[in-house]
Design a protein around this nucleic acid. Structure first.
Lengths: 149, 149
DNA sequence: GTTGAAAAAATATTGAG
DNA sequence: CTCAATATTTTTTCAAC
């Protein structure tokens, strides 16, 4: 799908605030809301917009700790490991990467104790687990889910 | 702010789909939409809900490559470096971490050439830069922005 | 592709239990 | 805190350019 500047403007607005009324988007980009409605529908159908999600403050719902975890997995056991990782509560991202680690995880836990339990009892016990390194996130300086479009 | 099971149910729904009409949320949790409206407003005011964002498929808007980058920063230069990183186009996350790296970045780039340029011309040229390691994301097995609440 | 206008649906507000 | 009823606004549809 080819995106023109109007599509990009709509994407910028919806990335910043997914609940902006079409009528206001229309006003800002100087088109009718029927057009905005039409375009958003096409962006959704084309898979450019994958979804709309409320961003919840992890601390406010009991997740005091977050970490990035590098994982080494035994050769040939990757499939099994990935399947297991997906199911662990608090694991929100599983990426296959080049470099020192085969897999990088993003995990959330209540506190450092809970993170330790998650790592020792769930991740390290997993079939095919070789070794891991946990990078505890001490603070997040910047996190904007918006891609520049 | 204290969250009860009703609040959590609303959060689960809005994390999965931020544009679910209040009327449907109300139907699903068996309450009136006025109550849902009231609760969502309080969750927003309390900062539990930080915002609503459209999730855009990076590939569909020209970002073929993504990476996690570990950074070492010279002591005392952290502030300056963080400020600079925030401004680089394509950098969507900047975390301070324990372990091998001081800072972990999430970056998006058009392709590996653009990633190289971003790393060599922007990141490595930054004041206070010591060294870095780029973990190119070959694939994302799982990525769900929803926190279990 | 875009539009204005009508119809349908949703959200915001109010007042009371 | 919750609700029903009302007022307001938005979404959706559609004939027409």
């Amino acid at each position: 799908m080819e995106l023109d500047e109007t599509d990009r403007a709509i994407l910028r607005i919806l990335q910043a605030d997914a609940r902006t009324p079409f009528s206001e988007i229309a006003r800002r980009i100087d088109m009718s809301s029927a057009t905005v409605h039409d375009r958003v529908g096409r962006l959704e159908d084309a898979g450019v917009i994958e979804g709309y999600h409320a961003k919840v403050d992890p601390r406010k719902v009991g997740y005091g700790t977050s970490a990035l975890v590098g994982l080494r997995v035994e050769q040939g056991r990757e499939e099994n490991a990935l399947e297991r990782l997906r199911e662990i509560d608090g694991v929100t991202e599983v990426h296959l990467t080049t470099g020192e680690w085969d897999v990088m995880l993003r995990v959330y836990a209540e506190d450092t104790d809970a993170l330790r339990d998650l790592m020792f009892d769930e991740v390290a016990e997993m079939e095919g687990f070789a070794r891991s390194q946990t990078m505890v996130i001490l603070g997040t300086d910047f996190e904007d889910p918006s891609l520049p479009v």
